[in-house]
Design a protein around this nucleic acid. Structure first.
Length: 456
DNA sequence: TTTTGAGTTGTTCGA
DNA sequence: GTCGAACAACTCAAA
């Protein structure tokens, strides 16, 4: 048998059901097709950077045999199938609206060519279609979804393991290189990301095992403090499937179920929930999950939006977080909530503007989690934060960066401010370069409460 | 059908 | 400084 393995969102050798089964039944032609027109939203810059390096590593692990193609996914699969007398195509199953549409096209087109197409769920612990309430409708609240839905459902598949042997089909497509995809473009921004990330399947596995051995027991408490580096930072690896979530889950099941372990598992549950919501409610990709917000009058002040993006709002914890994002392609979880609350509530900016910026800047920009997270923060989503929950950036900074280590790391111009003034430097006349607050916190809080009350 | 309890991550105010 | 209540109903999920 000659099998074409199409890599998409699962760029790994181990525990990859599509690759595993292809290897078991025949020889393998590994292919990656970059089809920019198949999704409504092109990949963001940081995602392209990550994807490039993930592919570089995967290709290296496969004796540099991957065929890289830029263009239409269906057309190119058909061409390769004819040229190499392919019997079957193996690929990972999609769960986001655009990619599901792509799956259907691939399936029907290859059916016409009499080529067998084998989809495998390589991405999620539970398929969204399998988790439903007793009346067959989807859950909209996380806790029952997770506890009654997921945890009561059959245990997720065990990880597939590593293929015993990968017999590669020889080909002569040397011109179809990774560089031809031009994922990196000409931006110099990427060079600084290299300092922060080791992008390979091996790195993902060792990062997980390090987290499991050294951090997870304190995760429940330490996860809130951005300077502790206490979180797994596996999100970008999970985004492109450089580690199998099934493998993670089954390894976690072997641990003593303390608070840290259970909390981390529930965070994987949140990842499931995001995909689940997007699967059952695809319109939330662009629209408010709660339609009543469609009439909300966002202020969208372009100067303030720019200040937020640059990390120049005058609120140290917000600015530190936005600069972390720009410098590392990542932002700590709690900080994401703080900057999102600030943008959406204190500046009254449409969540989609924040979502787009994160999409462009985050190396872990995930099509489901990014949307679900922003809708949650904005209060427009399923099971969302109540409207009166407005994070106070001064308080959040004092509580979760008590020694100011995170804040001053990203805003060195505040190094000499006494700690009691660090989160409100405007009360301490230091002659620093640091900017004045772009809004009055108390005023903006009241304004948000009034605006959100109108929607009720 | 009706009822009941619950819902990721917060802040402020007043006692 | 600490603590509980208010913030505000509303929708969801399940009995």
């Amino acid at each position: 048998m000659k099998n074409l393995v199409l890599f998409r969102n699962n760029l790994r050798i181990q525990d990859n059901p599509a690759l595993f089964h292809a290897c078991q039944t025949g020889k393998v032609l590994p292919v990656f097709i970059f089809d920019e027109n198949s999704t409504k939203k092109p990949l963001g810059g940081a995602s392209k950077y990550w994807l490039h390096h993930a592919l570089l590593s995967l290709n290296n692990d496969l004796d540099n045999s991957i065929i890289f193609i830029k263009g239409n996914i269906v057309d190119n699969i058909k061409i390769l199938c004819q040229k190499y007398f392919i019997d079957a195509v193996f690929l990972d199953k999609s769960f986001t609206p655009d990619e599901i549409a792509q799956d259907i096209k691939i399936d029907s087109n290859l059916f016409d060519e009499k080529i067998k197409v084998n989809f495998y769920n390589c991405s999620l612990l539970w398929e969204p279609k399998d988790i439903l309430k007793s009346d067959e409708s989807p859950y909209k609240v996380f806790t029952p979804f997770y506890k009654r839905g997921c945890l009561a459902a059959p245990i997720p598949d065990k990880p597939a393991g590593k293929p015993e042997k990968i017999n590669l089909i020889r080909h002569n497509e040397n011109n179809k290189s990774l560089e031809s995809l031009n994922l990196l473009g000409n931006f110099d921004w990427y060079s600084k990301l290299n300092k922060h990330w080791d992008i390979s399947e091996k790195a993902a596995l060792s990062k997980f095992s390090n987290f499991k051995n050294k951090k997870i027991d304190r995760y429940k408490v330490d996860r809130d403090f951005p300077y502790l580096d206490s979180n797994s930072k596996l999100s970008p690896y999970l985004r492109f499937g450089m580690i199998s979530v099934n493998r993670m889950w089954h390894e976690l099941l072997l641990l003593e179920k303390n608070g840290g372990v259970l909390h981390y598992m529930s965070e994987l549950g949140w990842r499931e929930f995001s995909y689940y919501l997007l699967y059952h409610f695809p319109s939330m990709t662009n629209e408010n999950f709660q339609q009543k917000f469609n009439s909300f009058n966002w202020l969208n002040d372009s100067n303030q939006i720019e200040s937020w993006k640059r990390g120049d709002t005058g609120f140290p914890i917000v600015d530190a977080a936005m600069r972390e994002l720009w410098q590392t392609g990542f932002m700590h979880n709690r900080m994401r909530m703080v900057v999102a609350s600030f943008l959406v509530k204190n500046l009254l900016v449409d969540w989609r503007i924040g979502e787009n910026w994160f999409w462009d800047c985050l190396v872990d920009a995930d099509p489901a989690s990014n949307i679900a997270g922003w809708q949650w923060a904005a209060g427009t989503g399923a099971d969302a934060a109540p409207y009166f929950r407005i994070f106070n950036p001064i308080l959040q900074g004092e509580k979760f960066d008590p020694d100011g280590l995170y804040t001053t790391h990203y805003i060195p111009e505040l190094k000499n401010i006494p700690i009691k003034n660090l989160q409100k430097p405007w009360e301490y006349n230091c002659g620093s370069e640091y900017t004045n607050p772009i809004v009055d916190y108390k005023f903006s809080r009241q304004r948000a409460l009034l605006a959100y009350q109108d929607i009720k």
